[in-house]
Simulated scan of single mutants.
Amino acid sequence: MNELLIWILGAALAAVFVWLLWLGRRRQQRVREASAHREAQRLALEQAEHVARAQRLAAEMAAPAEAGEREAQQQAEQQAAQAAQREAEEAQVRRQAERRAQEEAERQAREELEAREAARRAEEAEAARAAAEASARAEAERRAREQAEREAAEEAARQAAAAEAARIAAEIEARERAEWEAARAAELDRLAAEAAARAEAERLARERAEQEAAAQRAAAEAAAARGEAERLARERAAQQAAAAAATRELRADETLVLVADDSKIVRVKLSRLLATKSYRVALAESGEQALALMAAERPHVLITDVEMPGIDGFELTRQVRAAAATAALPVLMITSSDDKQEAAAAAGVTQLLGKPFSEGALLAAIERARLAVRVAA
């Protein structure tokens, strides 16, 4: 943009320079025309003086006697002829001066026309070059945006794949742990059953003679089995407690709330309200900006308006639900219309809030989303 402005200013300065050059040449032409006019006037005055001088000489020559009248008449005729010759020469000089002035004016007009044509061609070339550079910059910016969008999409896909792999691994580990605990419990039951059967067999073999000793041994074995069962139960409880202690609830200052609304007033109001509860807040003025922020860091709650330029709240919610990484993200939608329930439910909105919305309902929905998240201790 700055380079384009510089080129425009340069073209404007070049046009001003050409105009000033033309104006200077026009002024020079006018000066030359005025000088030629003054020269013609001077020649006319000189001619008039020559005629007056000839007439004066003729009058002086008419005063002598008749004897010299013929000679004076001849001299007057000679002087008149000389004056006529000088007048013809001066007229020729004037015509030559006028012709040279006209030729000079035509030459200057041609030079002025050529200068204007050269300036016009230079301006057209400069405009074409500026347009080509602007087109090249626009193409480069478009390619850069496309590359950034592809990289963001790839990064989002990688994050989604990693999250899905972690979820599958956790499910497999939990299933294997449950199967192991079930097998361990079955083994303990089998051992207890075998111990009871062994005690019963020993009691039947020794009959009455060893009845008391067998009973004591059976009691001891039963007590040992109970102790082993209790020990195993304590181990299972300890394992479950350790698993529960490995995670904790998400703190309020760790909870990221993304607000997508094209109204600056609403964004400022919500950010101040959420800041009073120590929530982290990210602000987006369009659906496209909200998707870009979610690609960089996944929020825990999304608050969106219905009507926004470009991607509106419904389309934003559908794209959030379509992505595996954000499919379960709580979405709170704010609208001033009462007929948006069906469209919001179809898009996958978690809760619809009216305008003016209840701050208590909004904070309660965010708290429910926060308490549902478990993080590593």
Rank of each mutant, 00 (worst) to 15 (best):
E210G: 14
A52W: 01
G354A: 11
Q41D: 05
E87V: 07
Y279I: 04
T276E: 15
A284T: 05
A118N: 13
R116Q: 14
G227N: 09
R368S: 08
L353H: 07
Q41R: 12
G10P: 00
A260L: 12
L362I: 02
E146I: 08
A62S: 13
R370D: 08
S336I: 12
G287W: 04
A59D: 14
R95L: 13
A327L: 04
L353G: 10
G10V: 10
L23H: 13
G227M: 05
R137P: 01
A347E: 04
S286R: 03
E155P: 01
T335I: 03
R107Q: 14
S278V: 03
V349T: 06
T326L: 07
Q85N: 08
T350W: 01
A195R: 11
G310Y: 04
L45I: 01
A91C: 00
R190I: 05
M333Y: 02
V268T: 11
R56D: 11
N2Q: 12
R38C: 05
L45P: 00
E66M: 12
V266A: 13
A344S: 13
A63T: 08
D189W: 02
S271G: 10
R370N: 05
A347T: 10
L291V: 08
A252S: 13
I172N: 02
A128C: 06
L283M: 03
T255I: 12
Q75D: 09
R120S: 09
E210Y: 06
T326Q: 00
E46W: 04
L291N: 04
R374M: 11
A209D: 14
A105E: 06
R143F: 06
V257C: 02
A192T: 11
E151K: 12
A183E: 05
A62M: 10
E33K: 01
E228G: 07
E187L: 09
A58L: 07
H37Q: 15
I6N: 02
R53M: 13
V349P: 09
V268P: 00
A328W: 00
R231D: 10
